[in-house]
């Protein structure tokens, strides 16, 4: 399951430490976005609650897909 982890404001300077904790908890980290304080990646659904409790994690959300209309659609 692809997830977005919002890093707590208090841990922005230590975002790499948060990423390390997420990896230890079984998350595959794809990107550590330092400017916005977000970490994206994937993990098995049953692990979700275990990473929510980690220090420096403000929120964990399932990723959402976006889809715009095809080029020839009148409303895009």
């Amino acid at each position: 399951m692809n997830v977005t982890v919002t890093v707590a404001g208090s841990h922005l300077a230590k975002i790499e430490d948060v990423a390390a904790r997420l990896r230890s908890a079984g998350m595959q980290v794809d990107a550590v976005l330092g400017a916005v304080g977000i970490i994206t990646g994937s993990l098995p659904e049953q692990r979700l609650s275990s990473i929510e409790a980690l220090q420096g994690v403000a929120a964990v959300e399932k990723q959402v897909g976006f889809q715009i209309a095809p080029p020839d659609a009148e409303v895009q």
Partner: peptide, 8 residues
């Protein structure tokens, strides 16, 4: 198509 990871 896109996903949160790319947009963020």
């Amino acid at each position: 198509g896109g996903v949160d990871a790319g947009i963020l």
